[in-house]
């Protein structure tokens, strides 16, 4: 059993800090930046866990794709004047979250895992081989899911041509949302 180098804690701080920011910041746009920060931190943790490839994908897809798409969406659908939830809502949220954290954390601390020394190969070639040989059905299924997601996103977000005669500025903006949605499609 070999522990990860303690410098990983830096990424832990980045990840948790980003997550905290994304949760606590009032402005939704800022929250997305917080999310991006957290994702960077998580990518770093992946790096430490031995998988640079997954870390790269994390940055590429999450930070480069999903977060950017979110930014686009916020630009298109940001309702002004809406305030974030009050203290009652927060308090109500703390109970299940705290309960969850307590129960699972307690279980984690009590649990003992059969930790082994690293034996397997972290070779990227192996991952590719497995992906296309052993897991090719899942791989294909995922590609179909992604295709369906793209088609579905277009259908859902498309402005109805027939009822769209009283086009407002908002709707015009919304119809452009398709582009934003497909943009992140391409990114993924």
């Amino acid at each position: 059993m070999d522990a990860v180098h303690p410098s990983a804690w830096a990424f832990v701080v980045v990840a948790l800090g980003g997550a905290l920011l994304s949760v606590s910041l009032r402005n939704i746009l800022h929250a997305i930046f917080g999310l991006a920060l957290a994702l960077f931190g998580i990518a770093g943790l992946f790096l430490y866990l031995g998988s640079p490839f997954v870390a790269a994908m994390e940055v590429l897809i999450y930070v480069g794709g999903i977060s950017v798409a979110m930014v686009f969406a916020v630009m298109l659908a940001y309702s002004l004047g809406k305030k974030e939830g009050g203290s009652t809502r927060r308090f109500l949220a703390v109970v299940p979250v705290g309960g969850f954290f307590g129960v699972v954390g307690y279980a984690l601390l009590r649990a003992s895992f059969a930790v082994t020394s690293k034996t397997g190969s972290w070779d990227l070639k192996l991952v590719g081989r497995k992906l296309l040989l052993d897991y090719n059905v899942v791989f294909e299924a995922l590609s179909v899911v992604l295709l369906l997601a793209i088609v579905g996103a277009i259908i859902i977000a498309r402005r109805d041509e027939k009822t769209g005669d009283d086009k407002t500025a908002d709707e015009k903006a919304a119809s452009k949302g398709n582009d934003a949605a497909s943009a992140e499609e391409r990114a993924s």
């Binding site: 999903i66 798409a69 298109l76 579905g152 949302g177 949605a181 992140e184």
Partner: peptide, 22 residues
């Protein structure tokens, strides 16, 4: 796979958000 699914999910969710907003 999780990342791929998350991407699909985000795409759908964002389009639903836009649709709901409209």
């Amino acid at each position: 796979f999780i990342i791929g699914l998350a991407a699909a999910e985000a795409a759908i969710a964002l389009s639903i958000i836009l649709s709901a907003y409209r």
